[in-house]
Write a protein that binds this DNA or RNA. Structure first.
Lengths: 164, 164
DNA sequence: CGCGCCTGGTTGAACCCTCAAGCTTCGAGT
DNA sequence: ACTCGAAGCTTGAGGGTTCAACCAGGCGCG
């Protein structure tokens, strides 16, 4: 049983900052979104991912991957958003196990209305703290961390076609 | 009403990575801590902050600040941890409005037992993804973001004495 | 001193997430 | 065709978080 390696000064600073950001940033964005439209940051992201998808629909599993959520969590949330008329569930024609979530026109209108305020909040709470070099460094470092947390995370997918 | 400035490529990468880290990292650490001792990352941090405090106690408000939590959230959690015998509430002698949370010996033993595994998890999920320059950059950038989210955040306090 | 406001903290209800269990369908193997 | 295991998804219960309301003690000020 070896002695654990405790954190050095930089490691501790980086870790404590990450912990604080993790608590404060979603809380602030949740507050803004809740005031603007009674939805959470996670709800918003579900709608946003669908709005950017081809045909404005995605299988539940793919939507779960793109929001870093469990299928269970997503299922509950989709039910809620469905009750508000912002999306629908449909069976997938090719595979009867698959359910797809479709953004409705009302859902599209909702997110289109919310987006400017949300982007403004992301800027003012997060990006405006940084100069362009910081943003580039953070993108690079952030993706390293993501790849350690989930090797196959969707944001790491390259969009080139696989070799023939 | 001006057109919102949408995110450029680096901004989008940085933001999406931050979002994913925000979801995946606490989830992974919660899993490890829950397996090791049926507590959450937040519970752990409450105990950790107390264990590092002088006298192993802090006023509720100060503890809330050091865990980036609302007083309400903290109050519920302290009740839970108190029921497990890991800490106690006591009135503050100087100001009857103040409650202090004290780490018990049992609480100290708990966190001492958990710490090596937790630190190891933080390393393997987070720090080990990065080289020392990355860690230093992340510490610097992270503190910039924290200061924008909360100007008076405790991790930004300098420990030098105020001018006479 | 007495009024009002602020600070520190608690509580209960509503809401959200997690976890485990379970259902249906697909696909591989025989 | 049949079986079995895995994939995709849903559900309900239990526990955690948030929000608004509330209480009590301190502080300033006339």
């Amino acid at each position: 049983m070896t002695e654990p390696r405790w954190l050095n000064a930089d490691e501790r600073r980086a870790w404590l900052a990450q912990l604080s950001i993790n608590t404060l940033l979603p809380a602030a964005l949740d507050t803004q979104l809740h005031a603007a439209g009674k939805l959470s940051l996670f709800d918003y992201n579900v709608l946003a991912m669908l709005s950017e998808a081809e045909g404005r629909y995605l299988p539940m599993s793919e939507l779960a991957a793109r929001t870093s959520a469990s299928l269970s969590r997503l299922s509950h949330v989709v039910t809620k958003l469905q009750n508000r008329g912002w999306l629908e569930r449909r069976p997938h024609p090719g595979d009867a196990r698959v359910t797809t979530a479709h953004l409705t026109d009302a859902g599209m209108a909702t997110i289109a209305g919310l987006a400017p305020g949300h982007v403004e909040a992301v800027r003012s709470l997060f990006l405006d703290a940084l100069d362009p070099d910081d943003v580039a460094a953070l993108a690079r470092i952030g993706e390293k961390i993501v790849s350690r947390l989930d090797t196959d995370h969707w944001i790491l997918r390259d969009n080139t076609l696989p070799p023939a």
